[in-house]
């Protein structure tokens, strides 16, 4: 159970970074940390004690294999995370070119 709690701690650090920091790059880093924590959480749920990787072998039985389904879905999620990060960074670079700052309180046009 301590693994789940440590993983939640990692998520909380990312959440704190996203909510508290005012620099756009720091916010992107916080989003990345949150993404890592969620991926790790799904794989932690799939883990079996003394299990082996989900690759079939004639010499060994399939009883102690870890869960392959969350691994396949997290594989998708990792690649989508890269695409999302690239898009956010592109928008951040454009914001820097237009306003010459990364500080979100200085970007006047976005104020409601």
């Amino acid at each position: 159970m301590s693994e789940y709690i440590l993983c939640l701690g990692l998520f909380s650090i990312g959440l704190y970074c996203v909510l508290r920091k005012r620099n756009i790059i720091k916010i992107i880093i916080g989003l990345g940390i949150i993404e890592y924590a969620v991926n790790l959480f799904l794989i932690l749920i799939a883990y079996r004690t003394h299990g082996r990787a989900p690759i079939l072998d004639k010499a060994q039985d399939t009883l102690n294999i870890v869960d392959p389904l969350p691994q396949a879905l997290v594989l998708t999620s990792i690649v989508i995370g890269l695409a999302v990060t690239a898009l956010i960074v592109a928008i951040a670079i454009r914001i820097f070119e237009k306003y010459n700052t990364f500080d979100i309180t200085k970007i006047r046009r976005l104020r409601g």
């Binding site: 991926n39 790790l40 794989i43 932690l44 799939a46 883990y47 299990g51 082996r52 990787a53 989900p54 870890v66 691994q71 997290v74 594989l75 990792i78 690649v79 995370g81 890269l82």
Partner: peptide, 16 residues
């Protein structure tokens, strides 16, 4: 990922 027996994910995570 490597310790948790997910080698495919470990490779992908490294590259990404």
């Amino acid at each position: 990922f490597l310790i948790l027996k997910a080698p495919d994910l470990a490779i992908t995570q490294l590259v990404v």
